[in-house]
């Protein structure tokens, strides 16, 4: 008796939580399909589903080139964060000297430093190097600030791989570096997935670096293009909603397909800390 009643309470609570958390997405969805002369409440579904907002947002906000910028910056950053992170994690996990302990702590403590705190000197540095509005500068910054987490995760993971594996291969005469690429690297797949997901979301969604270092219209990423668009057309809610939905779609779709990896990766990465 009691059991089934509490079951209903749970179901009801879950329904409420689900409805509450889907609400902003629902409102975004209805708004993005309404033409500008449709003044009905955002709660109401549009009378006619009008895809023009998406076309207009895409053209007016220059989203085509912003999409390409996002893709290039995210993809190259990912490659470097994974390779440099895995390489750094190997000696930090295997060569346990006082120096390496210190280096490891240095990297890990860098996770706490928000790039914004050193914005002024960073801006000057990038300007002096001629990196304003370039891919390479913003990629280097992304890689630098994503690396600490990547190194932290890779080091932790490599420590769980039994050393016997390498010792056996070493007796067979494999070099230490070859060992890393042939034996360790293939074992890193699960943690590499985690690093790619965390880094990918961080870089794709970035606003803080992009807004400072990618200001020209050709180099803008999605968030910057969207913020410019937003301040220009704030009264034209349908366009802005459509633009927001378009930029958020790729990570959302990826998440819905790879959900298991997203959640598992995040939980394992965080709890180990």
């Amino acid at each position: 008796m009691m059991k089934s009643r509490s079951r209903w309470v749970y179901m009801l609570l879950m329904l409420l939580i689900g409805a509450f958390h889907i609400l902003p997405f629902y409102l975004l969805f209805t708004t993005s399909f309404k033409p500008i002369d449709d003044l009905s409440s955002k709660w109401v579904l549009p009378e006619t589903w009008n895809p023009d907002n998406f076309k207009n947002a895409w053209e007016q906000a220059n989203m085509g080139s912003a999409f390409i910028n996002n893709l290039v910056i995210t993809a190259i950053s990912l490659v470097f964060v994974v390779i440099l992170g895995a390489l750094a994690g190997y000696p930090l996990a295997r060569v346990q000297t006082r120096l390496n302990k210190w280096v490891y702590n240095l990297f890990v403590s860098a996770m706490v430093v928000p790039p914004l705190t050193i914005l002024v000197p960073l801006y000057k540095l990038v300007a002096d190097l001629g990196g304003m509005n370039t891919y390479w500068a913003v990629i280097l910054l992304h890689v630098t600030f994503q690396l600490p987490l990547s190194i932290f995760l890779f080091t932790g993971f490599i420590q769980t791989i039994p050393r016997e594996l390498e010792e056996a291969a070493m007796v067979d005469g494999a070099s230490r570096l070859g060992l890393f690429f042939r034996i360790i690297f293939p074992l890193l797949k699960p943690i590499t997935a985690t690093v790619m997901i965390l880094t990918g979301i961080g870089v794709w969604n970035d606003y803080q670096f992009s807004v400072f270092f990618l200001q020209s219209s050709e180099s803008q990423t999605l968030t910057v293009a969207l913020s410019t668009f937003f301040s220009q057309y704030v009264s034209n809610v349908g366009w802005v909603a459509a633009g927001s939905l378009l930029s958020a779609l790729p990570p959302i779709v990826l998440f819905l397909f790879l959900q298991k990896y997203f959640i598992r990766g995040l939980a394992s990465g965080a709890v180990k800390g």
């Binding site: 609400l23 975004l28 955002k42 606003y207 930029s247």
Partner: peptide, 14 residues
């Protein structure tokens, strides 16, 4: 998964 900037805009409409 969504950019915090976009999250801000979504709630702006609210």
């Amino acid at each position: 998964i969504v950019s915090p900037l976009i999250m801000g805009y979504i709630w702006y409409f609210f």
